[in-house]
């Protein structure tokens, strides 16, 4: 079984790696790149804890092979921080509205919300639910997550003014 050399830009940093074909993008990000923010919840594509942005679009990292990421641009939850490592606008809104408890689903929620807000800074409740409908959270009952996204959207609109 041959390994494959891949190049990918992860959180704006170019990476080169040699990967076994069967390695999932999730395991690659966590174990090879050392980005632990992307979480393993089910490894069969239901829970959404491993969501990342692939060329700006939210996908499940457990349902993609690392070798397929060759030539792609990937953003993980770590990539949503400001350049100085402080929480970005969306992350700060999640803190302010306490849109989490145990924090395990949180990176996936943030990724889904980021994708939503990138194209729509005035989402309706239905649009928010559609955006995070594939992210399971066991702690919160989602209400404070929705409020966090609404807060972030408000701040985004204010910042744009």
């Amino acid at each position: 079984m041959n390994n494959f050399d891949i190049r990918a830009t992860i959180n704006d940093v170019p990476h080169r790696a040699s990967v076994e074909p069967r390695l999932s993008l999730l395991d690659f990000l966590r174990d090879d790149i050392g980005l632990g923010g992307t979480h393993m919840g089910c490894e069969h594509g239901v829970c959404g804890a491993c969501s990342v942005l692939l060329d700006g679009v939210p996908i499940r990292a457990c349902l993609m092979l690392a070798v397929q990421a060759d030539g792609c641009r990937i953003t993980t939850v770590e990539g949503l921080c400001n350049d100085d490592g402080t929480p970005g606008l969306l992350q700060d809104a999640f803190i302010e509205a306490h849109g989490m408890q145990c924090g395990y689903c949180t990176p996936g929620m943030l990724i889904s919300a980021q994708a939503l807000l990138a194209e729509n800074d005035e989402p309706t409740l239905a649009e928010i639910k559609d955006a995070i409908g594939g992210n399971l959270c066991r702690c919160t009952g989602y209400v404070q997550i929705i409020e966090s996204i609404q807060l972030a959207a408000r701040r985004l609109r204010e910042a744009a003014r």
Binding site: L35, G37, G85, Q91, E96, G103, T106
Partner: peptide
């Protein structure tokens, strides 16, 4: 008041066993 645990969870800085 803000919940102090949240900072590490939103930035990917938490330490779960797998980390």
């Amino acid at each position: 008041r803000r919940v102090r645990e949240d900072l590490r969870f939103v930035t990917g800085g938490a330490k779960f066993v797998q980390d």
